[in-house]
Design a protein around this nucleic acid. Structure first.
Lengths: 139, 139, 139, 139
DNA sequence: GTGGTCTAGACCACG
DNA sequence: GTGGTCTAGACCACA
């Protein structure tokens, strides 16, 4: 037996990427991201979520917006409210297998393919663009 | 007596893909698509656009929604109104070079890459998904 | 005991003059008036505009009509939307010099001169009429 | 007795000024102008109007637009259709006294004054602009 | 409270 | 036939 001393310093790469100018509403961006990170296991049962207040400050967003996202996720059973602690990932949350996770990408790939076709860009052009983008976000 | 063989083939693959449930407003989807098809030369100066009523009927959308899109494009100078006839691509509309067209894709690729990372999918997974999607829309 | 003398004077002379029967569409009348008041400095960067609902109620006009005007002005960069707060004159809005402002009058003066000629009224007649009208609106 | 050889060459200063891009519909521009010229005596009972076809060609306007204007004026009793000859000013048409003609200007002067106030231009500015415009149209 | 989007349906201007 | 304007009313996103 030993003590696991957590020397982990919260480098705090932000948990969520928020783009207030995107077409997608902010609250929806949050919902989507929690769903995905839970499906992939990056967020696991019991993991705490940032407090509404912190998240609001961090992204200079209205707290109500975040509250709304959390409430919706709670309604879906994906988050649980722990009195005095805040929101954590629910025990009932489940990992998704790869096929299901790929299915989650579909809306994005369809949209991308449509745009590419209309811009008269071919598969290779798009693959290059996507590859670059993936590498750029390779943390 | 003779056989009247109708060789008329309904070429009319719909000009626009509309998703009424998407986060992006319908009128904006149309605006985007006209912009892209014009940038790539798939729509050229003088080309007529579907009439407001037809497009509305085809997608069971309200005419005002279409009208709003057309008006915005007219305001941008991309469309011209021919009184009593309809809308056509403006003469002043310009082709965009490949670099600019790739830049137009950026929002879509960023969104895709973010989703993929959160779903714990790697570059190869995404490239495969995108390639399949592109091939599926390969007319 | 004291007298509470309400010195609050309803300054609220309506910001816009709307004529629902005019040839010019209502939304265009609003656009024009905001443009002019901004060009002359009567509306300055940061100044708030009446809320869509208030303006609609005040003139018994449909909100969408107002919204259409505001959206167009936002598209032109003359207005900025402050989410949840309302519309304000954009910081980038600029004063116009006198020559430019006189140019803005041209359409109106041309129309007036044409009407006067056809009514066989001479310059002096028109100048008198205009002077009277200006004095009548002299606040 | 002598022969009156008509050496008059149709200098043809156009009878109507048409602006297809104006806010005022074309047919309304025609109606207004006939009304005014009749009120002032510039058009008198029996005077012929340009044929629909000629007027249409001259201004590259659709004949139906002109036809509509003429029909409306005929409905008002201001024009009469003379079989085989075309439209002429009706006998019942009446001159208007100066006061009434000045009243006809009111809409235009009001609009001008409103624009001027909002552009922060004073009476003198407007009078100058109007005077110039009147002199410019002084045929 | 703010503005935005959409609908169904009416009427207008123009060809 | 074309597009444009307007209405009344519903629902959404955000503060």
């Amino acid at each position: 037996m030993y003590y696991c001393i957590d020397t982990h310093i919260e480098a705090h790469t932000e948990m969520f990427k928020i783009n207030p100018n995107a077409a997608l509403p902010i609250y929806q961006q949050i919902v989507d991201q929690v769903r995905r990170q839970t499906a992939s296991g990056q967020l696991q049962p019991g993991d705490p979520l940032p407090s509404v207040r912190n998240l609001a400050a961090e992204h200079t967003i209205n707290s109500m917006t975040i509250s709304k996202a959390y409430s919706q996720l709670e309604g879906e059973g994906l988050l649980e409210r722990q009195r005095g602690k805040g929101m954590v990932i629910a025990n009932s949350s489940q990992l998704a297998n790869k096929k299901d996770r790929l299915k989650e990408l579909e809306a994005s790939t369809q949209q991308l393919a449509l745009a590419a076709r209309q811009l008269d860009l071919n598969t290779q052009d798009v693959v290059n663009a996507v590859t670059q983008q993936m590498e750029r976000t390779d943390d």
